[in-house]
Write a protein that binds this DNA or RNA. Structure first.
Length: 628
DNA sequence: TCTCGACATCCGTGAACCCG
DNA sequence: CGGGTTCACGGATGTCGAGA
């Protein structure tokens, strides 16, 4: 139901959905200014009985530019701006007399600021991703992807505006969450997981900060330090991985295996050979100095095309197994509240267990470089047993060894030639890009994934392709206008002003099965995206003729009716009546002539204008391209 | 006395600013 | 660009006073 005075809603959720629809349709962001929960209202008026589904007895909404006057508590260390400017928009909703429903009792839809889609989409409320998506992004961020590429792909897929600081904040938030309540995590494990004698993920911080229960934990199960501390999956390392292709409802049924990668360099190529071992043992190798993040890989088309990676040449004839860090699985398990964790992951002190299993060699990937440095010695893996925490002493020992190892790595790094560093950077860059690409390739393939809907909208044309059954038959002569059009290169000229350029977007949407079209034009300055002209209105067509009328409202204080004719994919209309506010600045617009012509996927608009000082003269010319 | 509007204030969250 | 951190925002409730 639309938001208007008198509209009733059975539940708060219904109201919320209607509010969201109103926001999207009008490009305004509303916030709750005041509420009175039904529990609180029942206390005040004990004779009244409320339906719990309405949640509130009173809700007062305002525009994000309105709202309460904030009393700043700033100490002056930072300059903060507020967007509040006493916008008068107000929407008041109350419970009906019987307390069973909510109804809109008051509404004032006036705003004292400019309204634009760009502003609307830029607001944090619209930029925000849902919790699950944020978690997925956070996981991806732990693999050090190319953040700009990630941002761009996210924008493309979600259709939302996403800033680099949003990416940063998602990461910060995840880190904060991980650092929160380690004791709770331990408590959770001791209650539910240890009974199964299973393996669980614990952050190093968790263990350090929860020394009181550490011994108890270790006595019951192995503690697996997450890969975040031992870097991400790296070339030259070995890692425990989990086959996500066999995901079942029960994590215990998932196939667990170990993967090793050997890393070799010939005169003109690097090779990464991946070997897969059956489950049995988990151990870690000494990190290789060539620490390059490896992305999740799955299925076909896992690698970016050669064109996408200009820096070097990638060849791959086979696909990789999909794998992911155990840390991710452990965390997911905890969050899902599934107490049966992966019981097949245990730790071994002896490599013999592992060696008894014949490795399966997986296809290799070759990364070719335009130039090579054969002096760089190939690096092969020399397994070194990973000693997991067995107590505080071993913690210290482990830390000490890691420090030593880190120092050794530093020394090795210093010896590397500049050429080698460049190569490493190239490899890193490649994998950073691949990480992002593969992540989203996976999203495309997974049925029902949360990005899929918006992705389909984006890739399949966004606005629905309209069949004739979706608009009134009378609109057929104008159907070539339907959809969204955009241009960055409009040219403006007029004898009384300097020439200028502008960007503009236009949208033509049939109104249900009614014989009319709603349309919008909004333009901006290309240099700074500052809003310029806005026009909105409706197009009608005289039945059984080609006579059409534009009913237009301009933000410059002008309303007008333009009439004319449509012939094929071209229409021309001219002002027949015009109204303007009493305080509009001169010169006074007397008439406007508009021509719209579609050629292929392009739409050209030419506007001419007559004022009280200038005869009818061409004013604007722009060519739009269809965006959906 | 009851109901309701309006204002004050609290507090957790997270957006975004500063700085290395 | 990223880590650390400030403080604006959003949601909720308490309280006061006017009017029925």
């Amino acid at each position: 139901m639309a938001i208007e005075v008198g509209a009733e809603f059975n539940t708060y959720d219904d109201l919320t959905n209607a509010i969201k629809a109103y926001e999207a349709a009008n490009f305004v962001n509303l916030i709750i200014r005041d509420t009175r929960r039904v529990e609180s209202a029942a206390k005040r008026n004990q004779r009244k009985c409320y339906n719990a589904a309405i949640k509130y007895s009173d809700i007062s909404y305002c525009c994000t530019y309105g709202g309460k006057k904030y009393v700043s508590h700033s100490t002056g260390k930072r300059i903060h701006k507020t967007i509040k400017q006493s916008c008068p928009f107000s929407l008041k909703v109350r419970a009906t007399v019987d307390g069973q429903r909510l109804f809109v009792r008051e509404m004032s839809s006036l705003h004292n600021h400019e309204i634009s889609e760009a502003e609307f989409r830029l607001h944090p409320k619209q930029r925000k991703l849902d919790i699950d998506s944020q978690e997925e992004i956070a996981n991806l961020l732990s693999m050090e992807p190319d953040k700009k590429l990630l941002r761009d792909r996210l924008m493309q897929i979600t259709g939302k505006v996403i800033l680099m600081k949003d990416i940063h904040n998602i990461k910060t938030r995840l880190v904060n969450q991980k650092q929160k309540s380690p004791a709770d995590k331990i408590s959770f494990i001791s209650k539910d997981t240890l009974a199964n004698n299973s393996t669980i993920e614990l952050g190093e911080a968790d263990i350090q900060q929860s020394s009181g229960v550490q011994h108890q934990v270790h006595s019951l199960c192995d503690v697996h330090l997450p890969l975040q501390n031992s870097s991400h999956l790296t070339i030259g390392d070995q890692h425990d991985v989990i086959d996500q292709q066999n995901q079942n409802d029960s994590p215990a049924e998932r196939l667990c295996y170990i993967e090793t990668q050997s890393y070799q360099q010939s005169s003109d190529s690097y090779s990464v050979n991946i070997q897969q071992y059956p489950t049995g043992s988990v151990y870690e190798l000494t990190p290789n100095p060539y620490t390059v993040s490896i992305p999740i890989m799955q299925g076909n088309n896992i690698l970016p095309s050669i064109e996408e990676i200009n820096a070097h040449d990638i060849t791959s004839t086979n696909t990789f197994q999909h794998w992911t860090a155990v840390e991710e699985i452990g965390r997911t398990t905890l969050h899902a509240g599934n107490y049966q964790t992966i019981s097949t992951l245990t730790f071994s002190e002896h490599q013999n267990d592992l060696l008894s299993n014949e490795p399966q060699t997986l296809p290799s990937i070759t990364v070719k470089f335009p130039s090579s440095d054969s002096s760089s010695s190939p690096s092969t893996n020399q397994p070194a047993y990973h000693e997991y925490a067995q107590g505080p002493q071993n913690q210290k020992l482990k830390k000490h060894r890691r420090k030593e190892q880190s120092n050794n790595n530093e020394k090795k790094k210093k010896k590397k030639s500049a050429v080698q560093t460049d190569k490493d950077n190239l490899v890193k860059k490649y994998f950073q890009q691949a990480t992002v690409n593969l992540f989203f390739n996976e999203r495309l393939k997974t049925p029902g994934n949360r990005f899929q809907k918006s992705l389909r909208q984006e890739t399949q044309g966004g606005a629905p392709k309209m069949s004739e059954s979706q608009y009134h038959e009378m609109l057929k002569p104008l159907s070539w206008l339907f959809g969204k059009w955009q241009s960055e290169a409009g040219k403006g000229e007029y004898p009384t002003i300097s020439d200028f350029t502008y960007g503009e977007e236009a949208e033509f949407t049939p109104i249900g099965m009614k014989p009319m079209i709603e349309y919008k034009f909004y333009s901006w300055k290309p240099e700074n995206k500052m809003q310029l002209h806005r026009e909105t209105g409706f197009i009608r067509i005289k039945p059984e003729t080609n006579h059409i009328a534009f009913m237009a409202a301009h933000n410059l204080g002008v309303v007008e009716i333009q009439e004319g004719e449509v012939h094929g994919q071209e229409l021309t209309v001219q002002t027949t009546s015009l109204g303007r506010t009493s305080f509009n600045k001169p010169p006074e617009v007397k008439s406007v002539r508009r021509t719209l012509k579609r050629t292929g996927n392009e739409l050209e608009q030419v506007m001419s204008m007559e004022t009280n000082k200038t005869a009818m003269t061409q004013h604007l010319k722009i060519t739009f391209k269809k965006v959906n």
